[in-house]
Structures are given as structure tokens and as C-alpha cells.
Amino acid sequence: MTDLRDFYQEIILDHYRKPRNFSPLESATCQARGHNPLCGDRVEVYLHIDTGVVREISFQGAGCAISTASASLMTEAVKGMTLVEACALFDSFHDMMTGTGEASDPIDLGKLEALSGVRQIPIRVKCATLAWHTLKAALEESNNNTAASISTE
């Protein structure tokens, strides 16, 4: 890596210090819990889904700058999306982090691009994707109506 500033961009530090949508959601229709045993990060993602649209989304947890900022930016991006769009965003974000090129229909990641530098430090990719895997588990819970829990290990 050439410069740590590429990694810890201002937008990441801003979302770490002041995470958006950082609270439980009383009206949640589904939720999931994520855990990264490597660093002890925990995140809980709450969704209020109505007629196939994510009306509200929030998260809670304790984590590093990367995982917290990723979760915060995720909630901003996903709010108002249809379930199909949210799943497509997950695929595109996952693709950016892992470089697998599996997203069939990549979409513009906007502010989330700030996290692209994380790919240069493979051990930290799990930090950035923890909230996203938790989101996916919550979305699956909304389909199955069962409580979900994921681990990055």
C-alpha cells in the first residue's frame, strides 16, 4: 500500500466517528447478528421491509473503523431499495471487495467506493464485509421468517 490515507479516507473516519442509522429499530420486520471472531467485532442489522422495499434500516455493534464505516454506509445505500436491488448491491459490493467478478449486473457503488482500498489488505476484507453478510442473512430471514446469525469464520 502506498498511503494509509487511501485506506482510512476521510469519509470512512467520518462514518466511524458518527455512524449513521446507529440504533435498534423497533419497527424491524427482520434482523440478523454478525460476528467476526478474529477481532471480536459484532454487528446487528435491523430491517423494516414493506411490500418488497427496505423502508428502514439500522445497525448496532462494536467494531473497527472499517467495519463500522462499512455498516453505516451500507444503511445509507440500502434504505429505500427493493429487495432485488439490495441483493444486487450486496453482489456488487462483495465483488469490489473480493475481486471475483461474479456480480452479473454490477451497479454504481457511489460512496461505497471509498472502501475499495481495503482489498489491498486481505485480512481486513472481512471487516468491510461483516455488515453486508449480516444484511444478507437478515434478508434471507425475511424470506424464511427465522432468526439469523452469521460468522465470518
Binding site: 494509509l4 482510512y8 478474529l38 477481532c39 467485532d41 473503523a65 463500522t68 481486513r124
Partner: peptide, 21 residues
């Protein structure tokens, strides 16, 4: 600052520490 971020930044300075539990 989370320990994980401390570890990553120190590594960029050539300093190897353990972070985690």
C-alpha cells in the same frame, strides 16, 4: 481507535503486533 485499526497502521510502519482477543 479499534485495536484492529491500530494493528493495520502499525504494520504499515513495519511494526508487527497482535490485535484481537
Amino acid at each position: 481507535v479499534h485495536a484492529h485499526d491500530v494493528g493495520t497502521i502499525l504494520d504499515q510502519k513495519g511494526i508487527a503486533v497482535r490485535v484481537g482477543h
